[in-house]
Design a binder for these strands. Structure first.
Lengths: 332, 332
DNA sequence: CTGAAAGCGCTAACAA
DNA sequence: TTGTTAGCGCTTTCAG
């Protein structure tokens, strides 16, 4: 049952031409119309599928696209991955997926695997710092960062949501509602957003209200609960991602804080459940899918020269989780 | 900057041995202790990483695992994928991901890509019927189905959640609360669940209350809204997945149906937002991650002989979306 | 225990 | 326009 695969040699033989000709025809090289047709016919008859194995070895690269992201369980990254897949599929390229867990070491390990596989194009939501990516770049891979950057690696093009504008909008919205003690609930790799947050808030910043979780749900919850308990005087929080937002909602509920009466909440990343929540969550939507798609485009179209980076817009979607600052929270 | 990679030949040369010896040492073959050590040292010094390209061609297979699922955007599949990744990583195997969109044609296309890549192990949540998988099996690939089966392909081992028990539990719970007109909101590939649903319900079944959506959110919403409008007399619905559950909540809200007063809702698949919803959703939890992990184990451990299939337990998690059947719904 | 050599399927340089 | 040929890096006989 397990007969040998049809190879280029078989096709050549049956078509009565050399293997090189077959190769040429199949990759769109020059050939006389009649030869071309004959080869094509035979290839079809024999149901010939060129082996990527042979080609890869010869070309010293395996066409695929490596995709490294923190957590495929997070719908944001799920959507991002979906965008990459969509683009890759239209190009007929396989996608090799790896989850870094926001851990530099694991990231390095996965990079190792990709290198070993001869992958020469990588899209990454970087976790480690610039150092981690030195081997990749030295090996001459085409790289694109998505969603965030790696410290000290400005030589890698990227596709980002416009965090700057997003944070500004959120802060403006909140301050416009009269809030002054605004907290930021951050995740890994959000330095840039934090900087903007501080800047947008100006003299209102309170470093105690700026906290960061590690990647996990548990960590997010712990940080959120801690913050809310420690600083009952805060009146608004900006959550830097859907996991953080979820944690904030949960923690608030646990502490009997009513949203938005006792605390306004605005979350980065629009997710389906934001609408299901009560109250429905006001969010800064990010085009996760587009980010992935565009990143894949960049990494595929890269015809040698380094492509320009891309910045995609975010959007404030007002629902019901923010209210004007009213009476201060009732003491607990 | 782009110097040649270190090859096995380099290592052999520096270590003063033949390439075959290096190969043997690195793959744990026999070698004298001193040779072994010398080779290992040199390999480390040169930072030698064997190229999967060469090995793959030689062995006529690329180690990786192909993973085909309907939609990476759905957190259920996200968790499943995460399980696969976890297992694959511990085995050092790359995972090639493809999203079928629950479309047999796209599935076939992706299978083509995998075959071309020489992938010889694939885990799939099948969308097409048995036919789709004939080429894969004929090519001698190791296959495992996850989460559901392909019609007429009983020769492929699988890892499933115990749908039968899950549906029974849900139905028992609902009927125990006094519900009689119970609807089922299904998705693609849930024939088996439907059968159990009908069976568990016995003479209570009402075919008009059994509806199926295609994979998308929109389709799910349309189907759910249609059902609730068409049959205002139903008192409970069982949603066959988190997308369907989401749709049900949304549709109910749109029609001003209060859950659980006007309608009890129980959803397959526990997701984080189920707890955030109001009321929190009662669910049948499925071990998505485990399904993925176990599937990966099967496909990796498959030492030639076909492994046995696996059935994993589901769990009823009672929260607040189900209530005893009370006064019939107020007329609208 | 070890090395030489064949060859996996393909492409690209070269010759005709 | 075509065919011949030389490898890409690796594993695996097969001798020694």
């Amino acid at each position: 049952m397990n007969m040998r695969r049809t190879t280029i040699k078989d096709v050549a033989e049956v078509a009565g031409v050399g293997v090189a000709t077959v190769s040429r025809v199949l990759s769109g090289g020059s050939a006389s119309p009649e030869t071309r047709e004959r080869v094509l016919t035979v290839a079809a008859q024999l149901d010939y599928r060129p082996s990527a194995l042979g080609r890869n070895l010869r070309q010293q690269r395996s066409g695929g696209i490596g995709l490294l992201l923190p957590d495929i369980t997070d719908t944001f990254y799920g959507r991002l991955a979906d965008g990459v897949l969509a683009c890759a599929r239209s190009a007929g390229e396989p996608v090799i997926l790896g989850a870094t867990g926001d851990d530099a070491e694991r990231e390095a390990e996965l990079i190792g695997i990709l290198l070993e596989q001869g992958v020469d194009r990588v899209i990454a939501v970087p976790s480690g710092d610039g150092e981690t990516w030195t081997p990749t770049l030295r090996a001459g891979l085409t790289m694109v960062f998505a969603h965030r950057l790696a410290a000290g690696r400005d030589d890698v093009p990227s596709v980002l949501a416009d965090d700057r504008a997003g944070v500004r909008t959120a802060v403006d919205y909140l301050t416009g509602l009269g809030h002054r003690r605004i907290a930021y609930l951050g995740g890994p790799g959000q330095e840039q957003r934090l900087a903007v947050f501080r800047q947008a808030l100006g003299e209102l910043v309170d470093e105690e209200l700026i906290v960061s979780a590690r990647g996990s749900r548990d960590s997010a919850y712990a940080i959120a609960a801690g913050l809310l308990q420690r600083r009952p005087d805060l009146t608004a929080v900006l959550a830097g991602g859907n996991l953080l937002g979820e944690a904030a909602v949960l923690a608030a509920r646990e502490l009997d804080l009513r949203v938005p009466r006792d605390m306004s909440l605005i979350m980065f990343d629009d997710v389906p459940w934001a609408e299901l929540c009560s109250p429905p969550l006001t969010v800064i939507a990010q085009p996760a899918q587009d980010i992935g798609y565009r990143a894949a485009e960049l990494v595929l179209r890269a015809g040698g020269r380094r492509p320009r980076s891309v910045l995609l817009p975010t959007e404030l979607i007002v629902r019901g989780s923010c209210a004007p600052k009213g009476i201060s929270r009732s003491p607990r």
